[in-house]
């Protein structure tokens, strides 16, 4: 999915927390958004996901405004995902039920994705009995099952165990390569951005300071703020 951001601002309690004159995320890109806390990263992706409204400006998805068809074709995974008060299986099946897909197909697709992600053994467990890493994997499986062409990850692998992080990274990479989807990933982990993303944008104080390929931004930053941030992150 092609994303075009135009003159986007967000003001909260009379404070401008986001100001992006123009930014283009071409179709099939895997963009990492990095930057210090309070840079406006989460606000930006929430607005892209349609969970928040901009104060001015707009976002075009494949040259269209946000509508139900677009909305059904994108998703977001949060740092602390909400799992439905039911079994793992029902959590993952839920997006397909929303789309009126028949039971047999739901079953096939759920079994396929939990197999791929190594969580098949959890499918009959209640969601509230899962560990943090397990819950996050379930949330990712639930997001991927309906093949969205835009996947937004907001610190989705923060605060979970390393083996779960790698399993999730593999699943995301695999999904990106097989589905040619657009992926936007907010992360504080620069190594992760380097591992996964092909473009990176650095945000600071509500604006995108610079962007380019991962190598450009991470190894040859041009702005002072970016240099400082990356230096600190590698320490």
């Amino acid at each position: 999915m092609d994303i075009q951001i135009k003159n986007l601002t967000k003001t909260y309690n009379n404070r401008k927390i986001l100001a992006i004159d123009g930014f283009h995320i071409p179709s099939k890109s895997f963009l990492g958004i990095i930057g210090p806390n309070g840079a406006g990263k989460s606000t930006l992706v929430k607005i892209i996901a349609g969970l928040d409204t901009p104060s001015t400006g707009c976002i075009l998805y494949n040259h269209e405004g946000l509508n139900q068809r677009i909305n059904r074709n994108m998703t977001m995974v949060f740092q602390k995902p909400y799992l439905l008060r039911t079994t793992v299986y029902n959590n993952i099946a839920y997006p397909l039920k929303l789309r009126n897909i028949n039971k047999e197909e739901i079953h096939t697709r759920v079994q396929k994705i939990i197999g791929e992600m190594g969580i098949a053994g959890l499918q009959h467990q209640k969601a509230w009995t899962l560990s943090g890493g397990e819950g996050q994997k379930v949330a990712l499986a639930r997001a991927l099952i309906f093949n969205p062409s835009l996947l937004i990850l907001d610190e989705a692998t923060a605060n979970i165990d390393p083996s779960s992080i790698y399993a999730m990274e593999d699943a995301i990479k695999c999904y990106y390569e097989n589905n040619h989807a657009t992926i936007i990933m907010v992360t504080h982990n620069i190594k992760q951005a380097k591992r996964l993303c092909n473009t990176v944008a650095f945000m600071n104080g509500g604006v995108i300071e610079e962007s380019g390929t991962s190598d450009e931004v991470i190894y040859n930053p041009t702005k002072e703020a970016t240099k400082t941030f990356i230096k600190e992150a590698f320490l």
């Binding site: 074709n73 949060f78 929303l98």
Partner: peptide, 10 residues
């Protein structure tokens, strides 16, 4: 949270 989840899942 529930509303946001519902929205992101379509």
């Amino acid at each position: 949270k529930i509303k946001n989840l519902a929205k992101t899942l379509g």
